[in-house]
Each structure stands twice: as structure tokens, then as C-alpha cells.
Simulated scan of single mutants.
Amino acid sequence: MTDQASSPSDELAQNAELQKAVIVGMQPDQPRRVLDEAARYAKLLGVPLVVAHVDVTRFVTYEDPDGYVHSAPIDLNIEAGAAEFEAVQAAAATALKGTDLKWTARQLVGDPALAIKQLANKLDAQLIVVGTRKRGLGESIREFFTGSVAARLAHRQHRSVLVVPLEDAVPDDQPEIWTE
């Protein structure tokens, strides 16, 4: 099951059906392991899975009293975020095909940690699952300025956060974690 663009009343009805869900943050081309772990926990808990993609090229302009979020693009090429969301939906549909797991996909906007936190509050989520970042100088610089989504989630809300490694573990005898 996947969401398309929804109206405020549709979103309220969907939120009621998704209470206590497991939320997984996904990006295009993210290793499948993150989604597999989230699906495993959703099955264990007997709750739906919400696949969340955050479009960082958009920001929240205002939110209606019923919780419906209105957004605007940072730049005028809004098709990039839509294409990323479609890629995430397709990857989730492929990975979850044949399972009896109830799932949906949600497109969020803005700061990833804050957007996922807000969705978790709306759904009273039981667990948030995110992947680690990739190793490398570029990612280290990005994290320096924006912070780790997992760390920010862990410190800014009360739910458990499962952080799934995206790459093989760094050997204990390797002094530097990020070698680039």
C-alpha cells in the first residue's frame, strides 16, 4: 500500500490507521538493509510500516490546524524531490512485495530529523529506523554543518531510534574511520 498526494482529511484517516507504526527514513539508492530491518521490527510488533522520504529541497510554509502541511520549494526545480520519492516508493514496493506487511510511503519536507519527529508524533510511532551515513570526507563535512539525523532524533524526542549500519564495520585496528 502506498500513498499518493493526499488531502488533509485523507491524511487524518490514514494517520488513524497508522497509529503505533514503525517509521523508516529512506533515501534513493539506500542499501536495502535499512528497510529490511524496519520491516522485521514492524512484523515483530504487529504494526504498519511507514516509509518516509524527506525532501530537503522544500520547506514548510505553514501547517493547518488539522495537521496538513503546506510547503514551498527552496529552488524552482521541484521535480527532483518528486523523482526521489518515486524511487523510494518503487524500492520499497519491490522489497516488500509478497509480504503481508501493511505499509505506506510518506513524502516529508524540510529538516529530516524534525520532519521524521513530527510524523512520529502524529502516528505515536513505536520505533524510528534510520541508516548511518556513508563514510567519506564529503559526508563528514555535511554532517559537521547539518548534524547526524540519528543523533538529532535520539536527543530531540522520546522514541527509540534504531540506527542500521550502511557499510561494513571499520576494523578495530584502523585508526581513522573516515579515510577520504
Results as ranks from 00 to 15, higher is better:
residue 4 Q to N: 11
residue 9 S to L: 14
residue 14 Q to A: 15
residue 16 A to H: 12
residue 18 L to G: 08
residue 18 L to W: 03
residue 20 K to D: 07
residue 21 A to F: 01
residue 27 Q to H: 03
residue 28 P to F: 04
residue 29 D to N: 08
residue 31 P to D: 07
residue 33 R to M: 07
residue 35 L to S: 13
residue 35 L to D: 13
residue 35 L to M: 12
residue 35 L to G: 11
residue 37 E to M: 10
residue 39 A to F: 05
residue 45 L to C: 12
residue 45 L to F: 10
residue 46 G to W: 03
residue 48 P to Y: 05
residue 48 P to G: 11
residue 49 L to D: 04
residue 53 H to C: 03
residue 53 H to E: 01
residue 58 R to Y: 00
residue 63 E to H: 07
residue 65 P to W: 09
residue 67 G to R: 07
residue 72 A to H: 08
residue 74 I to N: 15
residue 74 I to W: 14
residue 74 I to F: 15
residue 75 D to S: 15
residue 76 L to M: 15
residue 80 A to I: 09
residue 82 A to V: 05
residue 86 E to P: 10
residue 86 E to L: 11
residue 89 Q to V: 06
residue 89 Q to Y: 02
residue 91 A to H: 05
residue 91 A to Q: 08
residue 92 A to V: 04
residue 94 T to E: 04
residue 95 A to N: 01
residue 95 A to T: 04
residue 96 L to S: 02
residue 101 L to F: 01
residue 102 K to R: 06
residue 104 T to E: 03
residue 108 L to T: 01
residue 111 D to N: 02
residue 114 L to S: 13
residue 119 L to T: 06
residue 125 A to E: 06
residue 134 K to C: 12
residue 134 K to H: 13
residue 135 R to A: 14
residue 137 L to C: 14
residue 138 G to L: 06
residue 138 G to E: 04
residue 140 S to P: 04
residue 143 E to V: 00
residue 144 F to Y: 06
residue 147 G to S: 01
residue 155 H to V: 02
residue 163 V to I: 11
residue 167 E to N: 05
residue 170 V to P: 14
residue 172 D to G: 15
residue 173 D to P: 10
residue 178 W to N: 14
residue 180 E to C: 15
